[in-house]
Write a protein that binds this DNA or RNA. Structure first.
Lengths: 123, 123
DNA sequence: CAGTTTCATAACTCAATGGTTATATAAATT
DNA sequence: AATTTATATAACCATTGAGTTATGAAACTG
């Protein structure tokens, strides 16, 4: 799979990365990784309002990262991994694509900055 | 490293994920993975204006994903992998943390990490 | 039935994004 | 010196994002 192939679902990739770009949402996802939780349970650790949490859940849902259920008057959220796969896939592919300098990154960058003023990395 | 540890640099993680949430910027990064490029070269494949590209580069620079150089009147951009590692780290840690439901994804990642039939990279 | 719990939705504010065009700056070219 | 090239910056516009408070709708409880 090529990098450009991941762009064949750009909207989903956009939505997933955008969803991950917020610390509250990442925290919610981490919480959901331990099991499904109601809106109230998800809101509890934060100081923001319940509607704000509901909005975050909508963002996560639109990205496909969670699914909502109905349990009486509760609307618990459950994690869905599939869309995360797109993000991981893109990043892993990117890393492989740029393999030459990715692994020993820090060391190489230091070398580049000091030993080689003009960035001829791996061409 | 735990998931919560990645939240110790939330701003950077925020900026990196946000930077990756735009297809133009992902495309720019893919282009830069093949080597540094000037603003004009980066703008060429797109139909948007040059200032728009400069703005995207600023976003990428703020996220630490690129560095700018000065070569006469050109300001070529060069990839910087370090912040991307933070994003990969968070996602991989998340995957590990939620390993039980990530089995299918593990398979996909193995695929990705292994065979590369065609040497062709990307746009 | 009346009240409470759980959650969603609406309406609003404020800041940030992503785009534009127009202009400025600095180096290269003629 | 004048012009062209490469890029940045400013000013503006429309849209989105993240938050708020207020209110509504179900479902549960007494």
């Amino acid at each position: 799979m090529k990098l450009s192939d991941y762009e064949s679902q750009p909207e989903n990739l956009d939505a997933v990365f955008a969803a991950l770009a917020d610390p509250t949402r990442r925290s919610i996802l981490a919480r959901l990784a331990t099991g499904e939780a109601s809106v109230g349970e998800l809101a509890e650790p934060f100081e923001i309002s319940q509607p704000a949490i509901s909005k975050h859940l909508k963002v996560l849902e639109r990205a496909g990262l969670i699914e909502r259920e109905i349990d009486r008057q509760r609307r618990p959220a459950r994690l869905n991994a599939a869309p995360m796969q797109a993000a991981i896939g893109w990043l892993e592919e990117f890393r492989r694509f740029w393999s030459s300098s990715f692994d020993e990154l820090d060391g190489l960058l230091e070398e580049l900055k000091q030993a080689e003023p003009k960035g001829a990395a791996d061409e």
